[in-house]
């Protein structure tokens, strides 16, 4: 019989191997690669911090960094709020909202790529039905993803449409895990519906909300497909998120070093923000 000390590791081995091969090794390769440069003939050489130093002087990088941070400052709280509202609606459905549950699942059933293409058609300036509608009601056609001022918000909207239903599921699970007697206790203690939400639901949803916010942040910092499909970083660089810059560097301009340097910086930013978010959303019990 095998020593029981090793048994847990044996069970964990497949998952750990997966983590190592698919997560940690690529991260290592990326961080290592960010310190290299590729010559025209494809030779790899160590360049130290050169890629990073260059990035600091690169206005495109700073602009992309600003756009990426702004994008995340808006989209993460927005998606969390929308997902929470959706979860509350499913949890305590209003009458006549059966249709809405179907609509909720729809975005999840469509792949990110396809939904971006569909939105491209839907929002199109010449043929898109939405602009047709806006003109009909007298608002006038909007450029949406083709407009420098609207493109980023359009992407935020599309991503929220796509993501909110998914994040809603986690929050819904959280809502279901709050014992109904706690609400009843609060009711008897004299809490109104709003007070129950404010003093019971909200604080008890800290953990699921922290999870959603952290996971959502990590995903949104890596937001890519709709940029690639709809805007290619434009117009005028308005949607040039760092992830798209990293993609372009690697696959369009064969500058792997710059691409990996951007990826490494992204990784660092995500780590810092995730740690901050976890701290922010720690329950008072954990803080004590």
């Amino acid at each position: 019989m095998m020593s029981s000390r090793w048994t847990p590791f044996l069970f964990l081995a497949p998952a750990l191997a997966g983590l190592l091969i698919f997560r940690l090794v690529p991260i290592g390769v990326a961080v290592g690669g960010s310190l290299t440069g590729v010559s025209l003939m494809g030779d790899l050489r160590f360049v130290g911090a050169e890629n990073f130093e260059y990035l600091l002087t690169d206005p495109q990088f700073w602009s992309s960094l600003k756009i990426t941070l702004f994008f995340n400052v808006i989209i993460n709280p927005l998606q969390l709020a929308v997902a929470f509202a959706l979860a509350m609606l499913v949890f305590r459905p209003l009458p006549g909202l059966w249709l809405y549950r179907t609509l909720l699942v729809l975005p999840m059933a469509v792949s990110t790529g396809i939904s971006a293409v569909l939105f491209g058609l839907f929002l199109d300036g010449n043929l898109g039905p939405l602009n047709g509608f806006l003109e009909w009601i007298g608002v006038g056609a909007q450029p949406f993803h083709r407009g420098q001022d609207q493109a980023l918000y359009t992407l935020i909207g599309i991503a929220t449409w796509k993501g909110a239903g998914y994040w809603m599921l986690f929050l819904l699970a959280g809502l279901y895990s709050i014992p109904s007697t706690v609400y009843e206790a609060a009711t008897i203690d004299g809490a109104s519906a709003w007070q129950r939400f404010r003093y019971v639901t909200l604080p008890l949803m800290r953990k699921p909300m922290a999870f959603v916010l952290v996971a959502d942040t990590a995903i949104n910092f890596l937001f890519f497909a709709p940029v690639y499909i709809l805007t290619s970083g434009g117009p005028g660089g308005a949607t040039s998120l760092l992830m798209f810059e990293a993609y372009r560097s690697a696959f369009t301009f064969s500058d792997i070093g710059r691409s990996l340097a951007i990826s490494t910086i992204l990784l660092g930013i995500i780590l810092v923000i995730v740690v901050l978010e976890f701290r922010l959303l720690r329950s008072p019990e954990e803080r004590a």
Partner: peptide, 23 residues
């Protein structure tokens, strides 16, 4: 393309020039 859809001409070209020089 950005210029066609209404971006600031000088801004779009300056940005392109910087990016081209970088690459």
């Amino acid at each position: 393309q950005d210029i066609q859809t209404g971006s600031d001409v000088s801004g779009a070209l300056t940005q392109a020039a910087q990016n081209i020089d970088r690459e």
